[in-house]
Amino acid sequence: MKRLFLSITKGEEIRFLGHLDFLRTLERAVLRAEIPAVFSEGFNPHMKIALDAALGVGVVADLIYLELRVEDSVSLEEVRERLAPQLLKGIRIHDIREAAPEWPKLINYLNEDSYEAEGPVSGTVDEARIQEETARFNGLDSFVYQRVTPKKVREIDIMPLLTEPVAVRIDNGRAYVTFSFLRTRTGSIQPKDIWKILAESFHMPWMPGEFVCRRCGVYHRENGVRMTPFDEAAFPATTQEPEK
């Protein structure tokens, strides 16, 4: 059995596929491609396939990592060649590599997401003010945000989670906000929170909830250094890269 990491795109065409729908689309593509995928045992076998995160409905991703287990008989090139023509418009394969059995699951390895949120501006746009407010936000040591879910209200200090300064750009009647934050086990912030905070507490010219999102990066961040599962140094010396 081989363990593969693939980096793929979830593009504009399939922006509105939710996580499970996107995963099912990939599964069916693997089946049509007649790639000998590995299945779980039991009454109701499932294909061993997983994504690095459950992207929401409406979120596109420049890169999303896919883990797939296949029989030894198939090579990486064959997987790529057979899978590519079976993919829906909006899904592209970038890279593919074999992973060692002891490497962590992607969902555990990756801990930082970068996003760009985009939405229409409303009201008057004052560029200077926007940049001032952005700087004010970035300068804060702490910003406690009340996250309201149907079940409970939670208070989170979002500043320690943000890894890079937030940037705001206005272009042609649309606002573009980029930000990066750490994933935490206890459910961290979400793009919609940042969008809302900036609108409500930092006078940004847009409406809470009126945006769509692009995940522009996902990394393993350690001591301020970003790595992807495809970097040579990603899985250091304690583990041996398997033979190709």
């Binding site: 922006r15 409406g58 945006f211």
Partner: peptide
């Protein structure tokens, strides 16, 4: 159709086409 509009719609994938 601005994708932002569809964010408030239930199951927006019903309206986008492009299925296999």
């Amino acid at each position: 159709i601005d994708p932002v509009w569809l964010m408030h719609i239930q199951k927006p994938a019903r309206y986008i086409g492009g299925e296999w």
